[in-house]
C-alpha cells in the first residue's frame, strides 16, 4: 500500500462501507480515495458509503462534488460523520445522515490477545452495568459487581469480588474445568463450557460460592471453604 492510501481506512458496516479519512488536506484525500475506488471498481460498485471525515470542515459545494463523483462510479453516499459542526450542518442540508450505528466502544469490548498463555487475566476494577459485555480469551477478574443485564464471556475462569447478578460464561471455548466464583453468587444465568444453569435464588445472607462442573457433568455451586 502506498503512503497516500494509508490515510484512508475502509471497514464493512452492517449496512454498507465506512470510509475514514483524517485531517490531511481535503483535496489530497479526495483524490487519493477516488483513485482507490477506480483501482477496484468492482469492489465499490453499488456500495452504500458512510464517510468519516474526522474534523474536516466541509461546505456544500465540496460535499456535492464528492457525492456526484461517487455516484458516477455507482456508489451512493448516505452518511457523513464529522466532529465539525459545520460539516454536520452541510451533511444535514444535503439530507445525509450524520451518524451511523456502530457498537459503542465501551459497551461491548472484545479483547484480542496473541500468544495467550494460561495465566492471562483481565482485571476490571469497576461495576459492570446492564448492557456491558466483556469477552476475553483468558481469565476475568472483576473487582466490583456484575449487575443484571451485564455479560462476561471468558475462555478461562471468572472471579467476581462482589455480587454476581448478571450472566457469566466461563470456559467459553469448551474448557470444562473452568470455574466461576463470586462473593455473592446470584446470577441470572451461569454457563461453563456447554453447561447452562438458570437463576439461583438470591440468598438472605450471601456467602462466597464457587461454581464448577461436577463428576456427573452438571453445573454445581458450593460454598467456599478455605483450606
Amino acid at each position: 500500500m502506498t503512503g497516500t492510501n494509508s490515510l484512508i481506512q475502509i471497514k464493512g458496516l452492517r449496512d454498507g462501507l465506512l470510509v475514514s479519512l483524517d485531517d490531511a488536506p481535503w483535496d489530497e484525500q479526495r483524490i487519493a480515495f477516488l483513485a482507490q475506488v477506480d483501482a477496484q471498481p468492482d469492489f465499490f460498485k453499488g456500495a452504500r458509503l458512510a464517510l468519516d471525515v474526522a474534523s474536516q470542515v466541509l461546505h456544500v459545494n465540496e460535499l456535492v462534488d464528492l457525492r456526484d463523483q461517487l455516484s458516477e462510479r455507482g456508489i451512493s453516499l448516505w452518511a457523513v460523520i464529522s466532529e465539525s459542526p459545520t460539516t454536520e450542518n452541510t451533511a444535514q442540508l444535503l439530507g445525509l445522515a450524520t451518524r451511523v450505528s456502530k457498537p459503542r466502544p465501551e459497551e461491548s469490548r472484545q479483547f484480542s490477545v496473541r500468544d495467550l498463555g494460561d495465566e492471562t487475566a483481565l482485571f476490571l476494577e469497576r461495576t459492570l452495568r446492564s448492557g456491558t459485555r466483556i469477552e476475553f480469551p483468558g481469565h476475568v477478574v472483576v473487582f466490583g459487581d456484575v449487575n443484571p443485564g451485564a455479560e462476561i464471556v471468558a475462555e478461562g475462569n471468572v472471579i467476581i469480588w462482589g455480587r454476581l447478578r448478571g450472566m457469566v460464561h466461563a470456559g467459553s471455548k469448551g474448557n470444562k474445568n473452568a470455574v466461576i466464583c463470586a462473593l455473592d453468587l446470584s446470577p441470572t444465568q451461569l454457563r461453563i463450557a456447554e453447561e447452562v444453569a438458570a437463576a439461583l435464588n438470591p440468598q438472605e445472607n450471601p456467602k462466597p460460592e464457587i461454581a464448577r462442573i461436577n463428576e456427573n457433568g452438571k453445573l454445581q455451586a458450593e460454598f467456599w471453604s478455605p483450606g
Binding site: R104, E107, R129, S130, G131, T132, G149
Partner: peptide
C-alpha cells in the same frame, strides 16, 4: 431499574 442501570453505564462511558 434495569434500564436505569444501562443508562448509568452509558453515562459513565
Amino acid at each position: 431499574v434495569r434500564d436505569a442501570d444501562r443508562v448509568i453505564g452509558i453515562l459513565e462511558a
